[in-house]
Amino acid sequence: MSFNSLPLVLIPGLLCDARLWAHQRSVLENSTQICIPDVSQDSSIAQMAERTLDEAPPFFALAALSMGGYVAMEIMRKAPERVLKLALLDTMVRPDDEARAKARRGLLALAQLGRFKGVTPQLLPKLVHPRCIGTAIADSVQGMAEAVGKEGFVRQQLAIIDRPDYRPLLKSVVVPTLIVVGENDEITPPEESEEIHRGIPHSRLVVLPQCGHLPPLEHPNLTTLLLSRWLEDSLHA
């Protein structure tokens, strides 16, 4: 199988849908099959991984962002033989510390009480670089959150809270791996990606300047270029 024609699975993050990968799909679908699973329907990372594997081709390249990275790591646990390349964007492999878990439980409780507000103007600065505020990028982020909705958000938060520690799995990842993180990511800061880079042999880490938590939207051309080179196995070009 040629890596240049390897099918590509793109997994969105929390409160995101296929629109997260709109630019990447529009460019890369000209040369490869693209699959973007709906990860708002399941309440565990394992179920999300099973859904993705059921929808994916037999062998594929796998790129995932944030919560999608947890799903990707679960796929690497369940079916590593099917993944021929791996790209992890703005994610982490350690479980939540108590402060982060407490914050998630608080948001979950509010949502279950009917107080889900999606991505508010107050939350946006934590997700994207300030240069993206008031642009179509911000509109896309808010639109995706509205589409996932309260029930999807509850399911996703339950899944995230219960996720396992994926750090012990890192050393078993032997496929070409690209790690990307926004320099200004406040949700999963660069040190989280640095930990993944140290744990996966022969991985490559790219830190994007003036970028928050959502590189596919904040730097669409550069993210697509990085994924194209990764698919072509020319990570050092």
Results as ranks from 00 to 15, higher is better:
K117I: 08
A56C: 11
S140W: 10
M76Y: 04
M144A: 09
L158S: 10
V141T: 02
L205A: 07
C35Y: 04
T32M: 05
V9Q: 02
P121H: 05
A111C: 05
E191T: 13
V181C: 13
V154M: 09
T32R: 07
L10Y: 01
R25I: 06
I179N: 13
A109Y: 09
G152F: 09
A87L: 05
M48E: 07
G212H: 13
I34S: 01
L86Y: 10
I36L: 01
N4W: 07
P130E: 12
D90C: 11
S44G: 15
L170Q: 08
E194T: 11
L222N: 03
I137H: 05
G69D: 04
L170D: 12
R94Q: 11
P58D: 14
L107N: 12
I187K: 08
K171V: 11
I161C: 09
L15V: 02
L84Q: 01
E29P: 00
V93R: 01
L124S: 15
T224K: 10
A63C: 14
N4F: 01
E194G: 09
L235S: 01
L178Q: 08
G69A: 05
A87T: 02
R82P: 04
S172E: 09
P209F: 05
E55T: 03
T52V: 10
C132E: 06
A22G: 04
L15G: 01
M67C: 11
E55F: 09
M144W: 06
I133A: 14
L8F: 00
E191R: 13
D38Y: 06
G212A: 13
E191K: 14
D233L: 12
P216Q: 09
L214W: 08
Q157E: 15
G212W: 14
A101R: 04
C16L: 00
